[in-house]
Nucleic acid binder design. Structure first.
Lengths: 152, 152
DNA sequence: GCTGAAATAATAGCGTT
DNA sequence: AACGCTATTATTTCAGC
């Protein structure tokens, strides 16, 4: 973090939890002027500290009650196999996240579906991709903590 | 989704990707008045479809280059063991997410740290908690996809 | 539930220290 | 960098349909 100070960090802390705060509200908390906060927020976006501002939905209300993690092992690790798997898998709407991993398997996918039937549909699509050796599925029983905000 | 229509879904779609859109911009896309959009967004928040609006930071810029998944197996599954583990683990600032799972282990944690040294510090704190049998750690090599927006 | 319009509030730009 | 001031835009409210 080369070019941001404590005030910037405090702004990031606040906006990570609630990006609907107005510059006026932030300026009151930080004992700065509205214009100063405005300029800092503009800079934090421009420099890429803030990538974007998004609405977080209640997944149960929009029919994504089932979250699964899928561990994928590929047949080989050639550049082609890896990149064509990535290219295909990110196009599945069920795939919220995809990480290439170190260790005993190659990718972790986080899958959001309505229910087990919908997961099964996804699973069959996934297993059809070329060069997959195994897919292991783990299902979320309960969400103890789910945070998009990094402590700063 | 009992009480929302196609227009609401379109608003949710838009705001999931960019919550900085103004009501005017949304109203232009949907061919509705600004006041109509305003009222719908208000309702979507009030009814809990939109849980919150947050800034998403670039984790590499704020020194969280290492993401790990930790699989935790507990000694037993008594209500006490489970809930006291949950209560302790969510207090670690490194733990972004914690899910109780079905299957061969009990919890998946998503951990964000600066580097492997910082992960090691976390690992030793975690392993100190009572009733833990094993912790398996998997490290992210690369992030292929990371989305907070559900396709609607 | 939508519209248009009016009132209130926030953001964006600028000149100064 | 921060400030206050001003202009521009956006949000919020409301009467009427």
């Amino acid at each position: 973090m080369p070019d941001i100070d404590q005030t910037d960090l405090e702004i990031l802390r606040l906006l990570q939890h609630n990006a609907e705060l107005t510059n006026k509200e932030i300026s009151a908390k930080l004992h700065k002027s509205v214009a100063a906060v405005h300029e800092r927020v503009r800079r934090l976006k421009e420099q890429g500290y803030i990538k974007r501002v998004v609405a977080i939905l209640d997944r149960k209300k929009i029919d994504r009650s089932l979250i699964a993690f899928s561990h994928v092992l590929l047949k080989d690790h050639s550049a082609n196999t890896l990149s064509s798997f990535e290219k295909e898998v990110i196009r599945f709407p069920e795939v919220m996240e995809c990480f290439q991993m170190t260790g005993t398997f190659d990718f972790i996918l986080r899958i959001a579906t309505a229910d087990m039937d919908a997961y099964h549909v996804f699973y069959r699509k996934l297993a059809t991709l070329p060069n997959i050796t195994t897919v292991q599925s783990f299902f979320v029983l309960s969400e103890t903590k789910s945070d998009t905000a990094y402590p700063l």
